[in-house]
Design a protein around this nucleic acid. Structure first.
Lengths: 258, 258
DNA sequence: ACTTGAGTATTACGTTACGTCATAGTATAT
DNA sequence: ATATACTATGACGTAACGTAATACTCAAGT
C-alpha cells in the first residue's frame, strides 16, 4: 500500500507537520516524491514510523532514535523486545503512581499518613530505574556486592544534579575509553584521564572513604571476571575491559597520592 | 518541615532549575524568602509540587495546571480522583501498546499479520479517549444516541487536523458563549456567531446530510433536559444552557437557508 | 471551462519547558 | 582563611513541533 502525508498522519495519529518535520530532519524520508512534489510513503515507512512512535512514547529524543535506527547492527526484533521491556517498566511506574494517588487521597481523608518523601514515589523512581537498567551491572559488581546497599542508599539520597553529573562522567568515560582503546596503550595520557574520571565516578557511588587505589585496582580485576562488565565495556571493542583493567592498574601504581 | 530548593528538588526528583522556573512563571511560589534571598518551601508547597507533577506526568501544559489550581472552586480531592482516573486510563493505553508490540513481534516472525492501521493501535487511541472524556456527553447526547455510532465511526476516521479544528471550534464556542451570556441577549450578533460555530462543530461529528435547522433546534432542547449538558454549559454560569437553547432556537428561525 | 474547496509544499517565526553556562553573593567545613 | 558547596539572577540555547502565510495542484461540481 502507498499513502499520502495526510493518510499516513491520519492512520498514525500524528500531524502532517510532524511527518514533514521527520522528513526534514532525516528521520523518516518518503518512499519517493511524485513529479508534483507530493510525498509518497510505503509499507516500510509505515513500519518505521511505528518504531519511531514507540520510541517517542518512551521519551527517547528524536536524535537518538535516528542514530539508533541508523546503526549498522540494528535489529528490529531485538529493539521491539527492548521496547516491550521498557513498556512493562513504564506500566510499573504508572502503577506506583496510582498507588501514590490512592494513598494521597487516603491521607487527605486522614486515614493514612505519608512522609513528604513518599509523596514523590513514582517520580523519583525513574532515576533509580535508569540506574538499575543502565549501570546496574556496574554498581552491583561482585566485588562491591557488599557495598551495594550503601551505594543504593547513596543513590536514593542523591540529588538530581549529582545524578546528572554522574551520567555525564559516565558518558565521558565511554567516549575517552573508546579513543584510548583505539590507541592501544594503557599507559597513555588519555588512558590515565579515563582512569581519573572512573575514580571520580566511583566516588559518587561509594560511601565516603571507601575509595583507595587498592580497592580501585581490585574492582578493575573483578571487571574482567564478571561477564556483566565485559559485556558492558566490550561493546566498545573486544578486549576493552582488559584494556581498562590494565590502565587502572598502571594508574593506581603511578598515582601514589589519593 | 521546611526545605531549600535543593532539598525540594532532590526529594521530588526534579531539577533546581525547574523549581526556579516554576517560581518564575508563578506556578509554585516559595513559602517565604530569607533575608539572603534564598527560597524556603514548606509542606503546603510540597503538596502543590506533587500535584503539579501528577498533572505534568499526564501531559497537561503548565499554563493549564496553573489556571486549574487557581480556580476558585479547586477541590484537591476531586482533582486527585480525576488524576487517578487519568492514570488508570494511561495504564490501559500502555497495555494496548504492549499488546501492539507483542503482535508486531509475532508479525515479524510470520506468526501473525497486522494491517497498517492496527500498527498504530494505542497511539491513535489517545484522540478517541480525549474525545470520550471531554466531549463524551456532547456527542453522546440523548437526542443523538441513534447517531452516535455513525459519529464514532466518523471520529475514528477523522484526521488529526480535523480533530484539532473541532477542538478549536469548541474553544471558540465556549469563549464567545461566555461573552454572549454576559450580555444576556440570545438574539444578539454574538449569540448568532456562537450558534453558527456550534452548527459547524456539529457538522464535523454528524453524518453528512444529518444537519438541519430542525435537528439543531431539537438537539438544543435536549441540552436543557440532559444533566450532562447542563453541567457542561452551566460551568460558564447558571442558566447558560438555557441561554444557548434560546439562542439556537432564534438562530434556526431566522436563518432560513442551510 | 471555470470556480471552488481540500490537500500539499515551502519558508519562517512562535512556543513550551526547561538545560546550560556565566557571574556573583553566601554558607559551611577544615 | 580559604576552599567547597549552595544559592540567585540573567541570558542564551534547544527540542519538537504549532501556527500562520503563500503558492501549487487536484478532484468535484456547475
Amino acid at each position: 500500500m502507498e499513502y499520502t502525508v495526510n493518510e499516513l498522519a491520519t492512520m498514525s495519529g500524528v500531524s502532517v507537520r510532524t511527518i514533514h518535520y521527520y522528513d526534514q530532519i532525516g528521520l523518516l524520508s518518503p518512499l519517493r516524491i511524485e513529479p508534483n512534489g507530493y510525498r509518497v510513503y510505503g509499507s516500510a515507512e509505515v513500519d518505521l514510523l511505528q518504531q519511531i512512535l514507540f520510541y517517542r512514547e518512551l521519551g527517547v529524543p528524536l536524535k537518538k532514535i535516528k542514530s539508533m535506527m541508523n546503526m549498522p547492527d540494528y535489529n528490529r526484533e531485538k529493539e521491539l523486545e527492548a521496547q516491550l521491556n521498557a513498556l512493562l517498566q513504564k506500566r510499573k511506574q504508572i502503577e506506583v503512581l496510582i498507588g501514590n494517588v490512592q494513598r494521597t487521597i487516603h491521607t487527605l481523608r486522614g486515614e493514612d499518613d505519608m512522609s513528604d518523601n513518599e509523596k514523590f514515589e513514582g517520580f523519583k523512581q525513574k532515576l533509580i530505574d535508569e540506574n538499575e537498567e543502565i549501570y546496574g551491572a556496574e554498581i552491583r559488581s561482585r566485588y562491591s556486592d557488599d557495598l551495594i546497599d550503601a551505594s543504593n542508599a547513596k543513590v536514593k539520597g542523591m540529588s538530581r544534579e549529582k545524578w546528572m553529573e554522574a551520567q555525564n562522567l559516565s558518558e565521558q568515560i565511554m567516549e575517552k575509553l573508546k579513543k584510548a582503546f583505539a590507541l592501544g596503550n594503557p599507559a597513555s595520557e588519555l588512558a590515565k584521564e579515563v582512569c581519573d574520571l572512573h575514580r571520580q565516578w566511583l566516588c559518587m557511588f561509594w560511601k565516603d572513604g571507601t575509595y583507595s587505589k587498592q580497592a580501585h585496582k581490585e574492582l578493575a580485576e573483578g571487571y574482567v571476571a564478571d561477564e556483566r562488565f565485559t559485556a558492558y565495556y566490550d561493546k566498545i571493542g573486544e578486549g576493552c575491559t582488559k584494556f581498562l583493567r590494565d590502565a587502572i592498574a598502571i594508574y593506581c601504581e603511578e598515582n601514589k597520592k589519593c
